[in-house]
Design a protein around this nucleic acid. Sequence first.
RNA 1: GGCCCCAUCGUCUAGUGGUUAGGACAUAGCCCUUUCACGGCUGUAACAGGGGUUCAAAUCCCCUUGGGGUCACCA
Length: 486
Amino acid sequence: MIHPTPRVRFAPSPTGYLHVGGLRTALYNYLFAKKNNGTFILRIEDTDRNRYVEGAVENLITTLKWIGLNYDEGPDNSGEYSPYYQSQRLNIYKEYANVLLTQKNAYRCFCTAERLTQLREAQQKEKHQAKYDKHCLNLTQEEIDNKLETDTPFVVRLNVPEKKTIKFDDVVRQHIEFSSDTVDDQILIKSDGYPTYHLANVVDDHLMKITHVIRGEEWLPSTPKHVLLYDFFGWERPVFAHLPLLLNPDKSKLSKRQGDVAVEDYRGKGYLKESLINFVALLGWNAGDDREFYYLNELEEHFSLERVNKSGAVFNVEKLNWLNFEHLRQKPVSEVLLMLKEELSKTKFGKNVYTDNYLIQVIDAMRERVSFVKEYAEKSPYFFEAPEEYDTDIIKKRWKDDSPALLKKLADNISEFQANASKDDFEHALHKTAEEAGVGAGKLIHPVRLAASGMGVGPGVYDLLVVLGKDEVVKRINTAIEKIKI
RNA sequence: GGCCCCAUCGUCUAGUGGUUAGGACAUAGCCCUUUCACGGCUGUAACAGGGGUUCAAAUCCCCUUGGGGUCACCA
């Protein structure tokens, strides 16, 4: 047994931001750890110097923390197995590469880029898989020594045995077999001395006592290489679980070209962390029932690797939007209030001052009508500023010749109110006005909505009026009577 | 192209030999509401195809087809 309790890791390459596919992988690792009293580890796979991005790690950590996936061990909290940056573990990899070299399970390759390219092109012409021809495996010790003495650049390659069947088990896909003849002599140490992913991840997973490797399906074809390494070192293999891919609408692997893929993009658009987590959790996993609404702590309770699906899942923004709506409406007003204030400060209404009490009324009125906090300002700007103009279609439809006169009477009646008039007061006033004029309530309801909001849609008209308040309503009615011409 | 993985409504999925194939999002209609939403009800909509195994296959096996991933001194 590698470790008595599960130890899992999320091991991203710091390329700049957290990809939603990465989020799903991180989440499943996290959930598996939580469910099984295990340890969740963040390890930074930064062995490619060419892809170094300034601030990428910080950004990754910020996003992970924002969304609530806290790790037990990682770069910024000294764990037992530190360092958690692969770039800081270079001599460890070198040491283990030497073990393989001594065993003859790896060998130095001095081939030039040109030779490799030629080889590859020739193989492609034959319609075969590009594969190294083990040319340098046949170098004599003398030849090798000469090359080393003259500082000829070299890489270290995995010596994949011929005609062997490489077998391994996967929690998601059960049993998988590869013929070793289809496995390339993978480079383990690059000529710059840095390891490739394949060596580094195996060595680190072993050293960090990782019990379960939970990662994306794109790693499946290279897993035989990893399995070979475990076997060569004589190490116990972790349990593998290859997760189905997250897909674009056209079913290809989720990519930047077809929409947003960075978690921070979604955050920026106003998606709640709760809905992001909930949504992504359900892309490839379900508890076996009809439940679709979960909080993170509930997922921790219900998650199991065994119920992860095999096939890829399209990232369907429509459903994400629905979940955002559901999560937003579950939030206590106090929390929505905070978010609304934050949001308003970013709009043209930011300079205005609204009391908490007022904003709470706005929230109550709009609750069932918004999926995003920013929609409070977008869908009901009239709560934050009097309308500048009036929807022309609604004017055409609802503003009649008698509207100004009727509204004037309504405004007169409303003027009689106490300052703290209730919703019922507005309703009574409207019906009374209609009755006295001998018209239906609709002759007043629609024009007064238009006058007060400039729009034809919104909360119930009495909710709208009571939130705005007596004085403001009267003022807006008078303005509308002046401004609206048919 | 080689290798590997996958296959239930448009999408996410339930289903583990016997179901009128269920739910959710989306979509259409109706109800509620003199608005819009919410809510409620209803509808359209799926087992890729072909062979087996079996009294019985969405469920098990094989083939075909389709889709995807991967074949770097990237991860």
